[in-house]
Design a protein around this nucleic acid. Sequence first.
DNA 1: TATTGTTATACTCTATAACTATA
DNA 2: TATAGTTATAGAGTATAACAATA
Lengths: 154, 154
Amino acid sequence: MGAAKAVAPPPVERVDTGFLESLLGYNARRAALTAIARFLEAMAPYGLRPVEFSVLSVIQHNPGVTSRQLCAALGLQPPNLVGLIRQLEKRALLLRRPHPQDGRAVGLHLSADGQRLMRDAERTAGEIDAGIVAHLSASERATLIRLLQKVYRR
Amino acid sequence: MGAAKAVAPPPVERVDTGFLESLLGYNARRAALTAIARFLEAMAPYGLRPVEFSVLSVIQHNPGVTSRQLCAALGLQPPNLVGLIRQLEKRALLLRRPHPQDGRAVGLHLSADGQRLMRDAERTAGEIDAGIVAHLSASERATLIRLLQKVYRR
DNA sequence: TATTGTTATACTCTATAACTATA
DNA sequence: TATAGTTATAGAGTATAACAATA
């Protein structure tokens, strides 16, 4: 065949990420980043980042929940929750009340302001989420969420 | 009905995360974190973190790719790629060669060692990934990946 | 002895502004 | 003037060790 010595390879025209796209982890991460980016924009008016939103949401639906329970439910480290709780308390969105049965623990509750904020924020979050999967059918969306849960639940 | 004044609410027994679990973003993030945790363990013997793995994988399948193209393909910021490339070059896993057409750019290539490492690492990554979705059927796995791509591709 | 909440701290990841060399 | 690569730097996010108060 022809001369095959020291032929400079042509520049890459289109980057092939085929192998990565065959991995579940890569696709889940990319999808999560897409969703989180939209979420960040939509929650900016409320002054809530994703972690703050999820913390307040769990407190709203579980009044009196403890820090420990929050950490377990959301996969957070206790030390990282301390500053978060303190800031949300400063903003008067949540209250810390003594735990009815355990003197070491503190029950977390939303204030009236916090409840109002979260009612609006959760509605907005639901709308944003629907927008992200607007080009999926309702059944595709349900399937996607069901399969994702199958992955991370043991 | 009964007396309803100042009754202390009972402690939370089981934390309800139902609302968060109705959001795609939350589920995608949890699934991604699960997959990444397994990936971290499996790649530790190769000394590769997820970003390093994805960078080397793209270079392997696109010899001569530039930093800029890598960043666009993987969603990285150029400044964050610099140190990564430098370390991988120090480990003699990749080579930087002048770009054949653009004097500003540098073409990235895997060394022979890098190619050997990535052949093994990609095989291991595929096995790990299969293990994460082992309790899903082959068709469920394909559906999951297809729907995730539908989310993050525009 | 174990657990809740906390402090201090460090490490990773990611983001932005500004510079240089070349196009 | 626009782009590729780089430097310096700052901000999130996440992790561990160790402590006081209570169980």
